[in-house]
Design a protein around this nucleic acid. Structure first.
Lengths: 191, 191
DNA sequence: GTCTATACGAGGATAGAC
DNA sequence: GTCTATCCTCGTATAGAC
């Protein structure tokens, strides 16, 4: 099944926002890559704000599904944690950081409608990771201090921050891995 | 002693970049706050790139001095760590994140000359924090795994990421504190 | 050093033909 | 749905007067 024009616009826009940020991409940029005139984009997404809002909604779905796949994979809990971290590593080689990390940086120039969607992303991510961490506590694999929620927030912060660090380094992926995985295995490991 | 016009421009520009990002501030914005025409800004900083480069150079100096003050304060090492974290907390109430965190997000749209300055900032910060952590290891206050360098990078990542998380929350400062300080005291404390 | 004036392109968005 | 044409504003930057 072929992708709709709206979806192709969203795909290209996501790439650009994750790479350059909200203020540094334009309808003209999208139009070149999608192969339609910029006026035509307004038919699908009347304003830039609505386009970006839709971007976040879809990103949440994609990430949610990816997390569900990890949870259902029956891998060990510490392996699930690694796979979760991999989600944040994988875009780096193409110069992409988490959409919501970028939009959190751009927060001050975004409308309230987008703010709300970003908040839901972080809330959902914390909830999913919190559940995973709680399981590990229950199973006696690791402990979370002072609480599972705090630990989840700290982990997410580390992942998002590691993306920023990685981005300004010469080898993004390697830098990310060197920062994230040692700390992950030191703190959350089976043995 | 009164501030030079160049310095006032830099002060206003720093606020704006740390709040909105590189692509979302303009000479027109600065001119309004400084009270001179935007053409006059070009006299002091011929191009936006040169202005931002100077911004990073000066930010590095400011942060370097702040770190030196902490090191010379003779506070306990774990207290020095808290004070270091405070540096990243304090701008949040005014909507400001670390200049280099923001510019790392904007990395893809910045010229090489600015890239180089940002890299130096992270290198310096890692070096300073690494020294502090090494002292703690030597004194037997804490241990760093797998290495002091990794631990330093992980901490910086967490601080930068916590700023992003905080920014998208309703109470930035409180969110930052809730994420950072418990993890800090759990991992690096005297007793 | 700061001003006015201006060039020139890019930005988001709309109207109306096809 | 996509196009052309157009509007109007903002953005960076320069020239030249004061």
């Amino acid at each position: 099944m072929e992708k709709s024009t709206a979806q192709r616009i969203l795909d290209v826009a996501q790439d650009m926002v994750r790479n350059r940020g909200y203020s540094a991409f334009s309808y003209a940029d999208i139009s070149k890559q999608v192969g339609i005139r910029k006026a035509s984009i307004h038919y699908h997404f009347p304003s830039k704000d609505e386009l970006v809002k839709e971007l976040v909604v879809q990103y949440r779905q994609t990430m949610g599904k990816a997390c569900d796949r990890i949870a259902k994979s029956r891998a060990s809990l510490d392996q699930q944690l690694i796979q979760f971290a991999n989600l944040y590593r994988d875009g780096l080689s193409n110069g992409q950081i988490c959409l919501c990390a970028m939009l959190a940086a751009d927060f001050a120039v975004l409308p309230e409608s987008v703010h709300a969607e970003i908040k839901i992303f972080f809330r959902d991510t914390e909830a999913w990771l919190g559940e995973l961490l709680q399981q590990g506590c229950d199973d006696g694999i690791w402990t979370c201090q002072p609480s599972v929620t705090q630990e989840a927030k700290g982990l997410i912060a580390m992942l998002q921050g590691a993306q920023l660090l990685a981005r300004s380094a010469d080898n993004s992926t390697a830098t990310f891995e060197q920062v994230v995985y040692p700390l992950l295995t030191a703190k959350f490991s089976k043995s």
